[in-house]
Simulated assay, not measured.
Amino acid sequence: MSTATATPGAPTWTATERQTLFAIMAAHAVSHFHILTFAPLIPLLRDDLGASFIELGLALTLFSIVTGLTQAPVGFLVDRVGPRRVLTAGLAMSVVAFGSFAVFGTYAWLLISSVLAGIANAVYHPADYAMLGSRIGPERMGRAFSWHTFAGYAGGAVAPAVLLAIAAGHGARAAVGFAAVIGLAAAAFVWIACPRDEPAAKPRAEKGPKPKLINARIIGLTGFFVLIALAFSGMNTFAVAALVTAHALSLSWASAAVTAYLMGSAAGVLVGGWLADRYARHGLIAALGFAGAGVATAMVGWLALPGLAVAVLLGVAGMLSGLCMPSRDMMVRAAAPPGQAGAAFGIVSTGFNLGGIVAPLMFGWLMDHGHADRVFLLGAAFMAITAAVALYQEARRR
């Protein structure tokens, strides 16, 4: 993949860089919107389809499993045919997935749509990061990664409200149809705005061993991504219920505390992009951020606090954890062999899926057995382990 459109050393963003970044941000925002398309509509889909919650949960599980199985192969495909083609194809598949359910609207088609949407979801991380890595100057890469992550947070944040508003007036199938429409718009934008893919360079005979993609650093970073998912996925899912149960907070205060966490995460990501561009020790930045987030989260689990104090602590935890994300992405970029960024991000991002499958079961078990306070303590423990792994990765790199 040519890097001619990136301008290393340029003091400001070039027009091509800005155009590429906006297109990738749009695609990532839509991807997070699509991740949450079916979940907030479950009560309505239950009535429309006559399905049980377990049957509807199966559709969400299929989505995660399919993404986990296909993300690494898609990463290799990105490196072979180019991120623009693969990203556009993934967005087009999401249009088919959600549009077909809007048309047919049966439970069987819900399962089919979930499988297709899971394949489409596997495209985003490998294609997005490969495109940014080849088209953005290295001194702006951290900020590019941070805006990419921020756009994903924004897409997920608005999804429930938008979908439920459409469903209230026109039904659940119309809301799912809207998800297809924005996918189509994003596909067109990516195809028009992103620089064209160039033919992959033919391998040249070189002296010495060829860099291996599956190496100790990539394997370690995959485990690192599993730990991040374990630290945040399950806690995010059960945070409101745990605050109501363990701290006797009102539902409004519990929701406000989780909102503070999400807003803090979004703000932290933008700060983290600036830090990732300014300081090269990305593992150290990630370790300090995760450690600080772990301390704040542990305090929520240990101490009997009023709602305002819980909201402040979770807001701090969110900001510190968000601050780590651009440095996390820079760690993967540094570990990827030349020309294999898509495959590298595809492999390590599979760790999110693995952790995302296990974490809800672990944290759900704590809730079912009356240990709601330990939801935050277990999350803090995983954050501490994540910080230790980040330090180890930094020491190994240096």
Rank of each mutant, 00 (worst) to 15 (best):
D47F: 07
L60W: 06
L77D: 03
D79S: 12
A72T: 02
I65N: 04
S64V: 14
A39W: 03
S64D: 10
I65G: 00
F53M: 07
I42G: 09
D79L: 05
S64W: 07
T67V: 05
L56Y: 04
P73T: 06
P73V: 01
A51P: 04
Q71L: 00
S64Y: 03
I65R: 02
S64Q: 14
V66A: 07
V66R: 00
S52P: 12
I65L: 15
A59S: 15
I54Y: 08
D47T: 14
Q71E: 06
L77R: 01
L45F: 11
F38P: 02
V78D: 03
L56A: 09
S52C: 12
A59C: 11
S64E: 08
L60I: 13
I54H: 06
L36R: 11
T61D: 13
V74W: 00
L49Q: 10
D79N: 05
P43Y: 12
I65D: 01
A51W: 10
G57Q: 13
D48Q: 14
A51Q: 05
T37D: 09
L58K: 07
V66S: 00
L69V: 15
T70K: 00
F63P: 00
G75V: 00
A51R: 05
Q71A: 03
D48N: 09
L77Y: 00
L62N: 04
E55K: 11
T67P: 00
A39G: 07
G50A: 08
V78G: 01
E55S: 13
I65Y: 01
I54L: 15
I54G: 14
G50F: 08
R46V: 10
Q71R: 00
A59M: 14
P73R: 01
L45S: 08
L69Q: 07
P40T: 13
T70C: 06
V66M: 05
F38M: 15
P40M: 14
L77G: 02
L60N: 10
I35F: 09
L41F: 13
